[in-house]
Structure formats: C-alpha cells, structure tokens
Design a binder for these strands. Sequence first.
RNA 1: GUGGGUGUAGCUCAGCUCGGUUAGAGCGCCAGGUUGUGGCCCUGGAGGCCGCGGGUUCGAAUCCCGUCACUCACCCCA
Length: 417
Amino acid sequence: MKIQAVRGTRDILPDEIPTWQVLEEAAQRLLGRYGYREIRTPAFEETELFARGIGAETDIVSKEMYTFDDRDGSSLTLRPEATAGIVRAVIEHNLMNTDPALKVYGLGPMFRRERPQKGRYRQFHQLDVEAFGFTSPTIDAEIVELAIAYLEACGVEQHELILNSVGDGRCRPGYVEVLRKALRERASEMCGDCQRRIETNPLRVLDCKVPADQAIVDQLPRFVDHLCPECRDHFGEVRRQLEVLGIAYRLNHRLVRGLDYYVRTTFEVLSGELGAQNSVLGGGRYDGLVRDLGGPDVAGTGFAVGLERLALLLPPGEGQSRCDVFLAPLAGAALDPALLLQRDLRRAGVRTMLDPEGRSFKSRMKQADKLGARLVAILGEDEMKRGVWTVRDMARSEQEDVPEGQILDHLKEKTNG
RNA sequence: GUGGGUGUAGCUCAGCUCGGUUAGAGCGCCAGGUUGUGGCCCUGGAGGCCGCGGGUUCGAAUCCCGUCACUCACCCCA
C-alpha cells in the first residue's frame, strides 16, 4: 500500500512557494497600512466553540467538521473557519478592554470534510480579517475596500463584488416569515431540497442553483425591501461610501452566506476562473457573535479569503534564479579556496553554490545555467598558476581575470548591483 | 453522501474499439559530441508490478467484475 497525501490535502511544492509568498507578503504589507495586527490562534479548539459560533444547523457544523475525542473525553475539533477561534482569543485575553477598536488578522490552515473539487480542499488556507468594536457603516465600506485592494495587490484583475444586507435581529424574523409565506405558495414548483428548506432555513432557498427555482426566487420579496429603518440606513450609507470610494458592486439579494452569525452587510467576491467554486472571498458583519460566545456585546466585521482559490487566479510563477554566483573549482587544489570563497560570499549575502559532486566542467556550466547564476567563477590549473579566477558573465558570455586577492570584493560588487 | 470522467516513465500523454514478440513519444533528468565553457542542435542512457485484486483466454495495458485513488459537478462554501 502506497502512502500518499490524505484525500483533499495537497503539498505545496517549491515551485509554487513564490506564489504563496506573494499572497502572504501582500497581506502583511497591506493590512499594516490599515492598522491590522496579526493574531495566531490554535488549529483546534473545543467543539462547543464552533457549534455555538457557526450555528449547529449549518452544514459546516452538522457534517463537515473533523471532530475527535481527547484522552480526557473532551471533544475537540480542527477549526473549520477562523473567526470563532479569534473571537475566543479576544474574549479570553480581554483584548477589547485595552483596545476598544481592535483590528486583527489571521492566516493559516482550516479543515472541512467536504468532497474535494477544483479550488476546494479538506485542508485549505484562509486569510481572515476581523475588526471588532466598530458599528458604523464606514468600517463596512473600509473592509470591502480593503478586500478589493488585497486582491488587486496580489495581482487579481478579474473579479466581481456582490453585496447584500441580511438585516438584524429586529427585522430578520419578520422577513423570514414573509419569505416563508411566499415560498409556501410556490413550494410545489420547487426542488425537494428547497421544499425542505422552506421550513428549516428559508434564507437558504434564495441561493438555490436549480434554474427553475431561481426564476421563482427572482419574484420573491427581497430582504432589502424589508429592512428595519436602522438596517436600511446602515446599508444605504455603506453603498454610498462604496460609491464615493469608486468601488463597483452588484446588489445580489440572493447572497445570504452559509454562516448563521452574519447581520446587515454581507459581501462576496467572485471569479469566473474557479469553476463551480467561484467565490474567492466572503465576509460581512457579525455583531452578535462576540456576545453569543460569552464576551462583551461588541460589533464585528470582517472577511475571509481562500488562498488556494486566490492562488489559482494568479499566473504560475516562472522559474526564478536561485543563485548569484556559481563556483567551479576544476583542479583538486582549487577546492579549498572555493569552499572559503563560498562561505564568505554567503556570509556577505550573495547566493552562492558549487557542485559538491565535482562533475565535469561542462556539467557544472549546465548546472550554473539552470540555477540562473549570473556569474561563474572558475579556478583551474591555469588560473592557480597565474593567481587569478576567471569570472564569466553568463548573460553576456564574456569573461575576465580577477586576481585572487580581489575576487571576494569583485563578486560582491558585481552581484549587489 | 450522490453522479459523470480518468488512472500507462518524474511531468503531459499515445497505445485500448479490432487481445498476440523486448510497452512508446515529447518534455525533464544523466552522460557524450572539445584540448577546461551554459543556452541551440545531435547521439546514447537511466527510469514503468500499464492504480490494485480477481476473472475470461493458449496469451490481457487492451475484454469482464470488483476495489481504491484522482478529477469535475451536485450539496455547501473560502
């Protein structure tokens, strides 16, 4: 039996790493400018945290979690999303006390036991951005603007922002009833899943993908028309500010999102290049969550980006140079000076390699070429007699003699420019 | 959990329909074509339980059954 990566997991091989570093460095650079600081929370938590935070009825909690019993009998779960764990840490360390306007982000692996497909893995990585303690629509708009800025900083050009409001505790129950009543009248025309959802979770009917159902959904009452005055004003101001900021969006009243904790603003960024998993980023407001998890009643807003999906949108990284100077000691007595020169160059910050196997000169030239070395420094019988190194510029195909006393400085200078 | 597609060299794939000598190509890798010089070109080489198990047959990569994996889609989501 061959051992291979677990279903739904994958290796990120060295060739792909530059792409991932682009995503990670862009996050660090950009989020700092907006005042966010990184937070790192454990990859697993008590199961109860997710059951309470995400909603026991959601698919994630009811059938997609990696849950196991610890030896003392407590139930633990690999985190299926980041927000619950971050909220737990915020509460546990009373971060809101010292910083009533808290901006944090997290980056790391999440785990969901779903059937894998394009852009969906059982272990996947998310960048999660969370702002606590801000109630005003200005932070909603800022979060959306930040999300778009991040995608663009990563080099994503083709994207579509969709936006909706799902109301709050005051107006949502009313709308759900209006919706359910309307749905019951059309129930016989809808798919089996939807007929069931009319009673269990009518909002989910809205994003049903069955074409016939979508036609019906388009005729249903819309949430935006049933918002309470506060939610309506809030949403109106979010939209106004997005327009001020020049951010194009499309209203989509079917956007309800899968996690129970969202209120008011919800948004998602789609890309056509991801197959069926076309959502690359999603977020919104979750004002009750911190309170529900036992913390102070503070507002929350944020988003999560799927990094595997984001990586799919970027062009494959081209082969990068891995070496500045390649040393080629040809004579036996040339090895020691080459080892010393290699050590000194590396300490000076110059990427330096040689062929420890001591293969043919031609082979070493090929290696230097493949590694992308700009310079090859050759030390053979002839050079040793004359007290010089031959330094070859690979791109120009030119070479020159450099006295051995100057070789270190010469190579340092040539590679720093 | 449910459907479809695909499993042959490190990678991309041909061969399978109409079973038949040592299973192929391109790329990649290694070596050589120079007396100490990369890319281009040429030559050679290494590398395959033809996913796995069973069946049919004189004979199976090829036909049949099962199984596992990958993949796309449904569900749901980043």
